[in-house]
Structures are given as structure tokens and as C-alpha cells.
Design a protein around this nucleic acid. Structure first.
Lengths: 142, 142
DNA sequence: AATTATATTAAAATAGTTCTAAACTGTTGA
DNA sequence: TCAACAGTTTAGAACTATTTTAATATAATT
């Protein structure tokens, strides 16, 4: 199956028709050799730089949300004012570099299994995420 | 030391003068028998309901930020559009109930120590937080 | 009490996100 | 072929949380 066909399938499975704009968004998100993290602003910038087509903010938000709902993208909980997204949808964790505002993946294998002994009646755990905040390690800083 | 004195001390240690408004904010935050979670909007509502004095949003934001900087409050990373804060500043983790948009504390003792084997050169870990998202546990739901 | 430094406030500004309504596109079926 | 329709795109407006501004008020210091 060609890349283009894969994108169309992803879009259809997310309940979206494959339009020019949406396929372009797929190219940016799923063509990359490596998974990556992005904000909506960054995604729009990449599209603008790469493509000769114009994609509005509304379309980008719609498409990204549909992919999250379908599980093709992951939203990352961060206390920043904007949302971060991850094209790596496998189970994994994150470093957040507070100085550079950068996210770094931590493989599931690099963290021991997290066993939470507290239970909430009538509720089940849907996901467990670890966020480790990191800062420069030099003595002069606090 | 009276409560009022404790608040004044907390404010001074946070680099703030003890004004009527700020002391009122302290009363709401630090008087409670139990620690609790809040958003700025909720905090403002509590103050309005309890107090005969008016406190502007700007003052609330300033004071909350100063307390976070000083370590009297904790900001909680959530993928919501608004920030959540916690008056429990001990090391602990959270359940986030996605249906009720409610945070629930998990004591440090209820989670095995988290050992991250991946290292980032030149960086050190400042904090490690676990967020476990929970949903209703009935078979009819996906 | 006067001075000065800081605080409070309403309102404006900003930024991310969502909504809206009009124009557009592609498909279907007569 | 082309009219009708369902779904799309878009610019811009609306909305929400947060921050900034600048005028007024208050607290601390002398």
C-alpha cells in the first residue's frame, strides 16, 4: 500500500474524507522517519513551509482532533498554555525540559512498570503517564 | 502562631506584602482541613462566596504564582485548557477522572518508586509525576 | 504625617482554541 | 450533463484563560 493510500485509509478510519488539505497534514505527520512532538502552531508552520497549498487553522484543529479520537495521535498533558501532540502513539513516557520547553520520549522499557495500589471504586485506569521535569545539571544553578 | 500570623509569614516569604486581599486568598487556600485542587476560576468563586471583600483576577494570579514559586502551591500538568493547582505540596501523584474532570491524590506510598533508566546528558530530574487517567468501569462502555 | 515603594483594580491586550456562516468541492442520480 | 446534496474549507468572529497596563489606593518607612 502506497503512502498516499495509507493516509486515505487513516483519514477514512477517522471519519474524514480525504481532501487535499487533510492528505497534506498526513504527509507532515506520518511521513517523518521518526515520531515527533508538535504544537498546532508548529504544525501549521511546517505545512506552510512545505506545501503550496493553504490550510486553515480550523482544518488543522479538526483533523488533529479526529486523529486523536481514532488513536493516531496522542495528546500530552503539560502545564503549558498550549497543547502538545505526539505522533508516537505507543505506550511511553516523557521528559519535559523546562528550560527549552522540549519534550523527550522515554521508552516504556526504560521505566519499571508502574503499580498503583490505590483503587477508585467503579473506575478503571485507562492510561498511566509519567512526566519527569528536567533542568540543567550544573552546581551554580539552584 | 495564629493562623493570621502564619499567612503573613507565608506571604512575606513569598516576597509579598500582607494585604487584605492576599490574606483572604490565604484563608481559602490554607485554612482548609484538607488539601484540595482548584482552578483560578474556582478559587475566585470561593473567595466571592466567603468574603465581603473584592479581589481582582490579577491579584489572584499574582498571589498564586508567587506561592508556586515559593513552593506553597503546586501546579498540576493536565491537558486541560486551564491550569490546575494543588494545596498539597508533598510529593505525590494523581488520578484524573476524565468524566468528571476531577483530580484525586495518590500518595507517594501507593506507587512504587519510579526509576527512569534513560539519562539526558547535562540534565537532572527535578520532579517525577504520574498521571493515571480513569474512566467508569462498566462493561457497556468501551 | 510625609514619602516612597508596592498593590489593587478595571479594562485592554494577548494567545490558543473553537465556532460560524458563506463559499466551495466532489459525488450521486435523474 | 448538470442539479442537488452532503460534507469541507475558510476567514474571521467569538470565546476562554491568562497577562499586561496604567491609574488609583494602600502599606511600609522615615
Amino acid at each position: 500500500m502506497s503512502y498516499a493510500e495509507q493516509y486515505i485509509e487513516k483519514l477514512r478510519k477517522s471519519g474524514l474524507r480525504p481532501t487535499k488539505q487533510r492528505v497534506k497534514i498526513c504527509e507532515v505527520l506520518f511521513d517523518a522517519e521518526k515520531t515527533f512532538h508538535f504544537t498546532i502552531k508548529e504544525l501549521v508552520k511546517i505545512i506552510e513551509n512545505q506545501a503550496n497549498i493553504k490550510v486553515s487553522l480550523a482544518t488543522v484543529y479538526n483533523t488533529v482532533h479526529a486523529f486523536i479520537k481514532r488513536g493516531y495521535l496522542k495528546e500530552i498533558p503539560l502545564n503549558a498554555s498550549q497543547s502538545y501532540y505526539d505522533t508516537n502513539v505507543t505506550h511511553h513516557h516523557h521528559f519535559f525540559d523546562e528550560e527549552d520547553n522540549k519534550l523527550i520520549d522515554i521508552d516504556q522499557d526504560d521505566v519499571d512498570e508502574i503499580n498503583i495500589r490505590k483503587k477508585i471504586p467503579g473506575k478503571k485506569i485507562r492510561s498511566v503517564e509519567v512526566i519527569a521535569k528536567i533542568v540543567s545539571d550544573n552546581q551554580s544553578q539552584k
